[in-house]
Nucleic acid binder design. Structure first.
Lengths: 339, 339
DNA sequence: CTGTTAGCGCATTCAA
DNA sequence: TTGAATGCGCTAACAG
C-alpha cells in the first residue's frame, strides 16, 4: 500500500536512498539516515510492490516448485505423505532464505516455460520429471533448475539434481531377500519408464541376484496401474494359489501397504504366505502389521538439499553440474519371512 | 522473453491492439487481425510479464495459500495425508481456473499482509487459523479470503469459510460409543484452544452423553502435545492398568493410528483392552489393524469448495458472508468394541 | 553520501 | 477499429 516514495517523504530523503537501504546497499547510506528509514519501514509495515520490482530487476526472488504430472492424474500421489513432507521442507527452507514459493502441478513443458518466464523466477525445483524430458525442458527454462527424483545416473551438463542411492537401495534389499531364502520375487513399480528411479532400484535387485549366481530377468519388473481398482485386481492375482512369488518387492511403501491390506482381506498371512517389502520408510510402514521391511530415505533432507543447491546456483552461480544422491538404509522389520 | 511490442511489430499492428486481444477485449479488434495475432502468440509461446501486469493492473491473478502455523512447528502435520490432499485439490482447482498459486507457511499476521500486498494477490486461502485471530487478520488483508478449518460457528460479517459439521460428527460418534456400552471415554485433541473445531467435536460428544442422561465434563477434553515423545508417554499412561478409559476418541486419524500402534507395542489388544476412534477417515485408517472406526470427511471437496467460493468472491464479489459446512458420516469399523 | 532521471512491459485513457 | 501517450513503483546509472 505504502510506496517507497511516501517513505522517502516521511524521512525527508529521496526514493533512491530508501531503495538503497531496502536493497542492503549499505555503504551508500549514512548510518543515522539508514536507521531512521528502517524505523519508518517497520512502523509502516512496508511491503514492496513485487510487480515494480520484477519489472525493474527482472527477477522476482521466487522459486517455482513444479510437480511434474497430470493435474488430474493419479491422485494417490498426493495421499502419500511423501508429497506433503517434501513440499513442507521445501517451503520452510525457501521461506527462511527469503524466497517466495509458487506451486504448480503440470506435465506441460511449455507451461513450465511460461511460468518461469512470466514471473521471472529466480529458480525452479522440478519433481518427478522423467529423465528423457530433462534436456528439452532445460532448453526452454532460463533460470537455475534442480530436478528432484529424476534418476540421473550419468553426467548431464548444466544439470542440478537431488536423488537417492536407488541402485544401492535395491541392491541392499535384494541381498536381504536372498539371504532370507527368497528366489521367486517380483518388483512392482509405480513408474513404467525404463529410465525411472524405480528401474534403477530394480537394477540393484538384479545385481544382488547376479552376485549370488541367480537370475532376475526383466519380466520381473512390473509397472503398476494408476487406477486403484486395477491395482486391486493385480494384487489379487499375486495372492492366488499357487502363489507365483514368495516375495513382492514394492518401489513405494504406499503401494506395499495398500497391497498388504488387500492380501489380508483375502485371508493371506503376511509374511507366512507371501512376503512384502517396500521403499521409502514412511510413517505408516511402521504402523501397519506386520511392520513393513523397507528401505529408508530422508524425505525432508531431500527437500532442503534441493533448495540449498538451488540457492547456491542462484546466488553464486556455483555448481555448473551437480548430482546429489542421498543415502538409504535397510529397515528390517516383519513383513519379509524366511523361506 | 518476447514482449507485446515485438508481437505487435510482427503482426504489423500497435501494442494496444495486441493487448486488446490478450485481454479478450474482443469487439475492439477485427476478426482477421485478431486471428493473425493469436496465431503469432501461440507460435511464439508468448508469456506475459507478470511484473508489468501487476504494475498496470494492480492484480496478479494469483492466490496465496497460507498454512497458518509455525514453519518449524509440528512437522507431523505435513506427514498427515490430509495436508497434501487438500493442497493438491486446491492447486488443481486454481490451475484449471487460470490462477497461480503461492504457498506460504507462517503464523505471522504481518507476513500474511505483506504477501498479499506485495503480490497484489487476487485472493487468499488460509488453513487452520484460530477463530480468535480472524478479525485482526481481516483488518490487514485487502483481498477476498476464505478460511478453511477455522471452526466458525456463528455469523462473522465479511467472512468466507469452509469447514465441517464437526459438532454433528462428534455427536454421531458419541452416540455410537454409548450404544457400544462405553461410559468412560476421553477425547484427545490436537488443538488446545477452546475455540477450535476439535472442541466443537467434543461438544458433540457431550451432547450425545447428555441425551442419554450421562455427563462428559470438560476434564475429558485433553489436548495432545506437539512433541512426539511426550505423546508416546501420554499414550502409555492411557494404556496402564487399570485402564482409566474404555475408549479413547481422537480428533484426527493420524494420532489415533499413532496411538494404536503404541498400544499394540505395549501388548494391548485393540479393541478388547481399549477401544479407539478417529476422525478424518484417511487411507491409513482403512489399512491399520484393527481398521479404525472413524468419522469420514471429504478432503478434496474441502479444497475445491474453498477455491470455488473464493473465485466467486473475486470475480463476482458475490457472497459477503458465507460459511460452508461439509457433511460427515460415521465409518464403523473394528477399533471400537462392545463393552 | 544523496538526488535526478530514465526505463522496465503492460493496460488504459483519449484521439484519430 | 486502431494507435499514441501516459503512468503504475521500483532499480540503477549517473551527476552532484
Amino acid at each position: 500500500m505504502i510506496t517507497i516514495k511516501e517513505i522517502a517523504q516521511k524521512a525527508g530523503v529521496s526514493a533512491t536512498t530508501v531503495s538503497n537501504v531496502l536493497n542492503g546497499n549499505t555503504g551508500k547510506v549514512s548510518l543515522p539516515i539508514r536507521e531512521k528509514i528502517e524505523a519508518i519501514l517497520v512502523q509502516e509495515n512496508y511491503a514492496p510492490n513485487m510487480g515494480a520490482h520484477i519489472l525493474a530487476r527482472k527477477n522476482s526472488r521466487t522459486v517455482g516448485v513444479i510437480i511434474f504430472m497430470e493435474p488430474r492424474g493419479d491422485e494417490t500421489v498426493l495421499e502419500d505423505p511423501f508429497s506433503s513432507t517434501i513440499l513442507g521442507a521445501i517451503e520452510a527452507e525457501l521461506h527462511s532464505n527469503g524466497y517466495y514459493m509458487m506451486l504448480l502441478s503440470t506435465s506441460d513443458k511449455d507451461e513450465v516455460f511460461r511460468l518461469s518466464s512470466a514471473w521471472k523466477l529466480a529458480g525452479l525445483i522440478l519433481l518427478f520429471v522423467p529423465k528423457e524430458l530433462i534436456r528439452s525442458l532445460q532448453k526452454k527454462i532460463l533460470s537455475p533448475t534442480v530436478f528432484v527424483d529424476s534418476n540421473i545416473r550419468e553426467s548431464l551438463p548444466g544439470c542440478l539434481s537431488v536423488g537417492l542411492e536407488d541402485y544401492a537401495g535395491g541392491y541392499k534389499m535384494g541381498r536381504y531377500l536372498i539371504s532370507m531364502g527368497h528366489r521367486e520375487i517380483v518388483f512392482v513399480a509405480n513408474d513404467n519408464s525404463e529410465d525411472c528411479s524405480d528401474y534403477n532400484r530394480f537394477s540393484g535387485f538384479q545385481k544382488a541376484f547376479e552376485d549370488e549366481g541367480l537370475i532376475l530377468n526383466n519380466d520381473h519388473f512390473i509397472p503398476l496401474s494408476m487406477n486403484r481398482s486395477q491395482r486391486i485386481d493385480f494384487y489379487d492375482r499375486l495372492a492366488t494359489k499357487p502363489f507365483p512369488y514368495s516375495c513382492i518387492a514394492f518401489s513405494a511403501d504406499y503401494y506395499a501397504v495398500e497391497a498388504i491390506n488387500r492380501f489380508q482381506e483375502q485371508g493371506r498371512d503376511i509374511p507366512a504366505d507371501i512376503s512384502v517389502s517396500g521403499f521409502d520408510d514412511n510413517i505408516y510402514s511402521r504402523i501397519i502389521r506386520p511392520r513393513l521391511t523397507t528401505v529408508h530415505q530422508d524425505v525432508r533432507k531431500k527437500g532442503t538439499s534441493a533448495v540449498n543447491l538451488l540457492i547456491r546456483a542462484i546466488e553464486k552461480g556455483e555448481p555448473q553440474e551437480f548430482h546429489e544422491y542421498l543415502p538409504v538404509r535397510l529397515e528390517i522389520r516383519d513383513s519379509v519371512g524366511r523361506i
